[in-house]
Computed example of a mutant assay.
Amino acid sequence: MTASLPNALTAVRLIAVPIVVVLLAVDDGAEGPARWWALVLVVFAAATDWLDGYLARRWEVVSAFGKLADPIADKALVLGVLACLVVVDDIPWWPLAILLVREIGVTLGRLAVASDVVIPASRGGKIKTALQLLSLTLFLIPGAPGWVDAIAWWVLVAAAIVAVVTGIDYARTIAAAVRDHRAASDARH
């Protein structure tokens, strides 16, 4: 049980994503009970993000699945919720576009080298995720005063900036992994 709990928490986060998306779609910007439930699930999912990594490291059960699935679960949660907020709350679309391009690029890059090396989340990637989750949590608070939305917006802008910087860093790391793989392959032949 100990070894599988962090991975189970990651799976729970993945399952929460479509539920939150449906709740936000049903609420359609009315800020009613469905929005409250979406907020609760996002906060719960954010807590599992921290907890699964903490437990995996503490119990020394870090797995290749966890290193790959954990960031995918984070991306699915953030992008799914942010896409809904762009539609139902008229949040500007450009941070979503930046995050989407970055996340697709990093994920495809990680998958391209996954047979040789697992590229775990970087410290900057974790900061980006924390900023995103804070922003989304603030945006989701039903009936929040305007200043809360303003803080949420600037935190989202900061997350987009960190996403660009860390995306470039991941691209360098992935390119180095590809070069190392080619060099090792050439040395064998």
Rank of each mutant, 00 (worst) to 15 (best):
L136V: 08
K126I: 02
L99Y: 09
L156I: 05
A16T: 13
P142L: 14
A73R: 02
L85M: 10
P120H: 08
A184C: 08
V165S: 10
S185Y: 07
I91Q: 04
V81P: 11
V88H: 11
V157A: 00
A121N: 02
A25C: 06
K67D: 06
R182D: 12
H181E: 12
D90Q: 13
I19A: 02
L85G: 03
F44M: 14
R57Q: 11
V87H: 08
L23C: 00
A83E: 09
V86N: 09
L96C: 08
A34M: 14
S135H: 00
A73V: 13
V61C: 11
E60S: 14
V86Q: 09
D74K: 06
G105S: 00
A56H: 07
G53P: 10
I127Q: 05
A114L: 13
D27E: 03
F139Q: 01
V106N: 08
I72K: 02
V87D: 03
D180K: 14
A150K: 09
L138D: 01
T137A: 05
L140N: 03
L9I: 12
L9P: 13
G66L: 11
F65E: 00
I98T: 02
V106P: 09
W153H: 07
D70I: 00
G124H: 03
A176N: 13
D90H: 14
K75Y: 07
E31Q: 15
H189V: 12
L138S: 03
R179M: 14
V40C: 10
V42G: 02
T166F: 12
T48K: 09
R188Y: 05
A76S: 10
A38E: 08
W153Y: 11
A97S: 08
L68Q: 07
A152Y: 00
G29N: 09
T166P: 03
C84M: 15
D70L: 03
W36E: 04
L9A: 12
P145H: 10
I168T: 10
